[in-house]
Design a protein around this nucleic acid. Structure first.
Length: 847
RNA sequence: GCGAAAGUGGCGGAACUGGCAGACGCGCUGGAUUUAGGAUCCAGUGGCCCUAGGCCGUGGGGGUUCAAAUCCCCCCUUUCGCACCA
């Protein structure tokens, strides 16, 4: 029987933490700081045990760091703008704010029932004007610096969400949120010039040595830097019309093999050529067909490569030869210049195209070894290194360095320039929806785009809005919002009715936490300097390119504004694995969600917390199992029985008199285990963040203490009776007091309620939240005797118990003399004895 | 197709720097306690051989080494990322 009652204990301590404001923080100069952050939450309604895992990892780290003397900032907030709120409002004929605030209240309750040690006084929600006014402020700062600008462009349009998506939000041609097939639309849009920082963002990756390599690779790919050259091919035709096709190539070293030029169907010259074609209608129709091709298929390469001859030619500026100009469906208008030089011998796509349409294939690179390549017999393009052939004055050069040299040559002849291209595009932030930050711009028919004056911020979202679900922006339908006065000429003007992408909100919230209630600026740079950058950031890998690249971009903008001093916002990143059930991610639609409240009411928050930390390392996916949770609960019951059973014995016992020299072997063994556990748990938590093995070590300590108690005749293991302190030796009581104290302290980041309760029962004053992490004493942990395995030819044959300070020679002699070993060495020649001090002996024999 | 990570008992996982493979937990088996069940406690639990004892064993094959889950090469599988980016 156990009287462990998690519900009562958890309620008691949660109330006490709140009353004592145990986790609120202020700046304390001179103390080391630690900023532990979990990605804030979208208030979708209910947190499930998958979300919760993220927060628990953060809480264990935060609590541990606090006990190790750090001033820990561990805040939480809400990524509260976004489409689901609006959709729910349309469906329920309600208001997004009502839905959002209700969800926040519910989820906050869930988190509080888990006993997470947040600095709740810094809680923020991005839908509050007190927050989003600073989005507007930052937007205007960027507008002033040309980092926010407006342009007409073809954009990704999600028909279901009725809004624009950034490139980063299009996944496999579908909307990242609802999976609808993304369409193309031409719209005037606001962009943030993230490309200005493309090189800086790429270079910064090199210094992110505490980020998972996987995330860095994804960011590198996303930025997609490639060095190459722009080269102009003059179009042949009437001299009055000097047309040129500019191509981007990374392989200018193959330009002597460029035997035709390919244009994207959307290229500007295509319309020109259409008009001048022999049969403009037929030409136009073919172009139309290409342009109408499914965009997803074009982007993913899922279409057959096709093209047609424009009938025009251009001059290869290096060879002077006339090469045909074709239009090809696989050439992308949005990358480079929308035109490419085709070198079929050395590019597989061009090769397939050339073979299909019988276009010439000229080999200009010969590999150093193997057969000599021949354009007429080639079976696939050769893209490797080699030396240049048929390349005019460059013949004989190695591909190594030739590209740089030839780009320079192109530049000096005025036919091209070395250049760098990025796959990264500027970030389109306009959204034609209501529930987001209004873009603080006024369109004046006379003065053009006018920023809303800083003193008029925030531009607040009007509350009396109708949600029709019609698809156009609700704000655009509200004359009282739209109609305004131009701040410059005082004439009637119109407000911008688009709102900002919610990723703007989440790109700097970690700074706002440092100074959450500031109503004069976004944040005080001094306060951010005190806490930031974030030391440990924990969240899902799904944000590897979206949120994490935008935040790195904003960090640089703030640095240029003189508001932050660091280069990177997040020093260490941990991407936690998802919690699966029946092999798939938990979701409402699959009906496989595990509700934390239900688990809490059965087993308590502590058991849930422990289970999620113990089952696997934080980075790994885990499969939810009820029996695993039961096992964790069982362990906590064991801890409860052990500590409450010993409570009277250890209360008030001084550890000062503990001295190994006076102790029996069995007591020394317990102390050794205690300190060995302190060492292991400490390093498992920090820096390794292997929370699962830290828990294992604590379980081993508990097992050892049970065995010790049984051997000492202390009947705690059955819970049958509580020993009388007067009948137990002082050494035993002190040994147990040390062990149990360390156990409760080290377990407390995982199961804080249980440990607080036990700590109090053990007679300690004050909350564990402010207690000190146990100190590791190497001298105690060091064993006087060690067990050394002895191998013969690599096979384990004996274990020797020897003094810890045994000499190499003595160990060798003892090994050779061991009876079990001699059975294997008898009559053989010992060729060699490998002795690894304190670790192992390996005897190598022959014959 | 390219790139990265991973593959260890019935299951989740451990083994940190090349040094006792399987810690810890789940599950299972046996025992104690109990009217019974549950709970609890104790013991056992990689496979094979009848045992003492031994042999085999970290996806498969090869290699380096006194010694390999760990390092190298080839192959297989899974997961993730990228995918006509010129």
């Amino acid at each position: 029987m156990s009287d462990y009652d998690p519900q009562a204990i958890e309620k008691k301590w949660q109330r006490r933490w709140t009353e004592q404001r145990a986790f609120e923080v202020t700046e304390e100069p001179g103390r080391p700081t630690y900023y532990c952050l979990v990605m804030f939450a979208y208030p979708s309604g209910h947190a499930h045990v998958g979300h919760v895992r993220n927060y628990m990892i953060g809480d264990v780290i935060a609590r541990m760091k606090r006990m190790r003397g750090f001033n820990v900032l561990h805040p939480f907030g809400w990524d509260a703008f976004g489409l689901p709120a609006e959709n729910a409002a349309i469906k329920n004929k309600s208001h997004p704010e009502i839905w959002t605030l209700e969800n926040i209240a519910h989820m906050k309750g869930q988190l509080q029932r888990l006993g997470i040690s947040y600095a709740w006084e810094r809680e923020l929600a991005t839908c509050e004007p007190e927050y989003y006014r600073w989005n507007q402020w930052l937007f205007l700062q960027m507008f002033e610096r040309g980092l926010a600008y407006r342009k007409r462009s073809t954009v990704n349009w999600c028909p279901s969400c009725a809004t624009v998506l950034a490139n980063e939000q299009v996944v496999d041609g579908g909307c990242w949120r609802c999976d609808s097939v993304v369409e193309r639309r031409d719209l005037e849009q606001w962009f943030l010039r993230i490309t200005e920082y493309a090189d800086a963002l790429l270079d910064g990756i090199e210094r992110l040595d505490q980020w998972p390599e996987k995330v860095l690779t994804m960011q590198r790919n996303w930025i997609g830097r490639s060095e190459g050259a722009l080269v102009r091919f003059p179009v042949s035709g009437p001299e009055a019309k000097l047309l040129e096709i500019e191509v981007f190539t990374t392989r200018i070293d193959t330009i002597y093999g460029a035997s035709f030029v390919l244009l994207a169907p959307e290229h500007a010259l295509v319309d020109e050529f259409t008009e001048e074609a022999d049969d403009p209608d037929a030409f136009r129709e073919r172009v139309r067909q290409f342009r109408a091709l499914d965009r997803t298929a074009r982007l993913t390469g899922a279409i057959e490569k096709e093209g047609f001859d424009t009938g025009r030619t251009a001059t290869n500026p290096f060879t002077g030869e006339q090469v045909p100009i074709w239009i090809a469906n696989f050439v992308l208008a949005e990358y480079g210049t929308g035109a490419v030089m085709a070198v079929p011998a050395h590019d597989q796509r061009d090769f397939e195209f050339a073979r299909k349409y019988q276009l010439p294939v000229q080999v200009v690179i010969q590999p150093a070894e193997g057969e000599t390549l021949d354009g007429s017999t080639l079976e696939e393009a050769y893209a490797g290194p080699g030396s240049l052939v048929h390349s005019g004055e460059f013949t004989g050069r190695s591909t190594d360095g030739a590209a740089r040299e030839m780009a320079a040559a192109a530049a000096s002849r005025g036919i091209g320039t070395p250049t760098v291209q990025f796959r990264l595009k500027d970030w389109g932030i306009s959204r034609q929806r209501y529930w987001g930050t209004p873009i603080p711009i006024i369109h004046c028919p006379h003065c053009g785009l006018q920023p809303v004056p800083y003193e008029d911020l925030p531009v607040e979202l009007p509350t009396a809005v109708e949600f029709t679900g019609r698809g156009d922006s609700p704000l655009a339908q509200m004359p009282e919002f739209v109609e305004t006065i131009c701040p410059k000429c005082q004439q009637p003007a119109r407000r911008e009715t688009d709102t900002m992408d919610t990723f703007v909100d989440s790109s700097w919230y970690f700074y706002r936490f440092c100074d959450a209630s500031n109503d004069r600026t976004a944040f005080d740079p001094e306060r951010v300097k005190y806490w930031a950058p974030v030391d440990f950031y924990i969240g899902g890998v799904e944000h590897a390119i979206l949120h994490l690249i935008y935040s790195r971009f904003f960090c640089r903008v703030f640095k240029d504004l003189g508001m932050v001093e660091h280069d990177e916002p997040f020093t260490r990143l941990l991407t936690q694995g998802m919690v699966l059930r029946d092999g798939s991610v938990m979701s409402k639609s699959k009906g496989n969600v595990v509700d934390p409240d239900q688990m809490i009411s059965t087993f308590g928050a502590d058991a849930l917390r422990l289970y999620e930390m113990f089952v696997a390392p934080p980075e790994k996916e885990i499969e939810w199992t009820d029996s695993g949770l039961e096992g964790s609960f069982r362990f906590l019951t064991r801890v409860w029985r052990l500590v409450t059973g010993l409570e009277a014995l250890v209360r008030g016992v001084s550890l000062d008199t503990l001295n190994d020299a006076d102790l029996a072997v069995r007591h020394r063994a317990v102390r050794r285990r205690t300190h060995e556990t302190i060492r292991r748990v400490s390093s498992d938590l920090d820096p390794r963040a292997h929370l699962n093995t830290a828990v294992s070590a604590l379980m081993e300590l508990v097992n050892e203490l049970y065995a010790f108690c049984e051997a000492e005749g202390l009947a705690v293991h059955t819970g049958a009776e509580r020993p009388d302190p007067a009948s137990v030796a002082d050494e035993t009581r002190a040994t147990l007091a040390e062990a149990v104290g360390a156990l409760v302290l080290m377990l407390s980041p995982f199961t804080p309620h249980l440990c607080e309760e036990l700590w109090e029962r053990m007679g300690h004053e004050g909350s564990l939240a402010r207690a000190t992490w146990p100190a590791f004493e190497p001298a105690v942990a060091r064993a006087e005797e060690i067990v050394v395995p002895v191998q013969v030819n690599g096979k384990l044959r004996a274990r020797l118990t020897v003094p810890a300070d045994v000499s190499e020679d003595a160990l060798r002699e003892a090994s050779l003399a061991d009876e079990g070993v001699r059975g294997h060495t008898e009559g053989k020649t010992v060729a060699r004895v490998v002795v690894v001090q304190r670790k192992l002996v390996n005897i190598v024999i022959k014959g």
